[in-house]
Simulated assay, not measured.
Amino acid sequence: MRHVDWLVPSLLARGAGTLMFGQPGVGKSLHALHLAACLCLGRAFLGFGSVDAPLRVLFLDFESGWQWNAEPIRAIFKGMGHPSIPEEFLYYSPFTEECHPLEEPAGTLVALEDLGPILEETVRSHRVDVVIADSLGQMMIGDTNSGQDVAIALRSALNPARAAEAAVLVLDHAAKAAIGGAGVPTPVGSQQKRAWARVTVAVESEEMDGRRCTRWSIDKSNAAHFDPFLTHMQFVHGSDGQLAAVHVHSVGSAGPRSPRKGAVRERVERTVLEHLANGPARRQELGRGSTFDQVMDELLKNGLIEQIGRGQYRLRRLLYHAVHLLRQVGAQHEANALAHSINVDS
């Protein structure tokens, strides 16, 4: 059995791939930059432990460019007490001229599928220990919704860096959780990406004591799992309004994930039910869009509304609506009692 050289125990290993995924705005990029800073400075990442010496990290920014990320990158290092970006941190984006340390004209776009040999040469010549790719979609020629195209892109672009003994971390967007589910994210093209990665980690937004936190949990691992935990980011601004420092703190263990629907879906559902409480309505009067279609399917499936004609709907019973509202406000005992009386599944 091959020895695993963990750079961050249970998370990041030489020659292996790690996938970190979550919805937009959850803080994937900033957390990845904090991880990069920890590795460059030889410090522990959120209690995971660290290597004994600073590592060289190559951050591939396929989302934006240096003009957008220079400030948060500097702020991440300043938040760790380091006044400047160390030479161990290497940055590259095809969308900007100001790349550190690689020299390449802006607008020279190499398709992700063709990036492998260039990346392998960069890893070897610059002695890169960790490659972080944020993210892949904009650089792919293939269809990002095609599992086969995703698999080809991952293997052709990033496996050469793994072969050069670099650890590779890919940041990716999460697919929307199934309506009515527990809100558990999954990576887009999940089967192929899970097969490519040794470890896949889900990151989600979560409220704790009035603070917005980030929940970390293992989605899949070929190694020892870690228990879900929470982190919190603190942003410090200078007198000029510019971002001066970013501090990332470990808040502690995360409890069980609370089943919940997305805020947008809840709002659409509430709008539909409130509208139908005033009487039957046609579908086009109630709303439109993919989220609305999913909400309507769920309400029909759960028996809260019924179709009474072509494109026309009404509340199935006001009592069904009452059960639903009781559950929404957490009055589970009362909801179950009422549900039992009208034969609604509790």
Rank of each mutant, 00 (worst) to 15 (best):
S125R: 12
P160T: 13
E97Q: 13
A175I: 07
H324V: 03
A331I: 09
H31K: 05
H100G: 09
H225C: 07
R215D: 06
H225F: 08
P83C: 02
K176R: 11
I76K: 05
T231E: 00
R162V: 01
S258I: 15
G303P: 03
Q23E: 14
R270P: 06
E121K: 07
F95G: 08
E206Y: 03
E87Y: 11
F235G: 05
N336I: 12
E120W: 05
L112D: 08
N278W: 09
V110Y: 05
P280H: 03
M140N: 07
I308F: 03
Q328G: 12
G279W: 00
W216P: 03
S341E: 13
L158T: 06
R283H: 08
A202Q: 05
I118R: 10
F95K: 01
V268P: 03
E87R: 06
N222I: 11
P72K: 03
G22D: 07
A36S: 06
S250D: 12
S50K: 03
R317Q: 09
S146L: 06
L319F: 11
S253P: 11
D134V: 06
R257T: 00
R215P: 04
G303D: 09
A224L: 04
L325Q: 14
I76F: 04
W66A: 10
G107S: 11
A244P: 02
Q284C: 14
A151L: 13
D297T: 15
A32I: 03
S64N: 14
L58K: 02
D114W: 06
L325M: 13
D293Q: 03
H324C: 05
T214F: 00
A75H: 04
R211L: 15
V329L: 09
R327Q: 08
H232A: 14
L230N: 04
E103L: 10
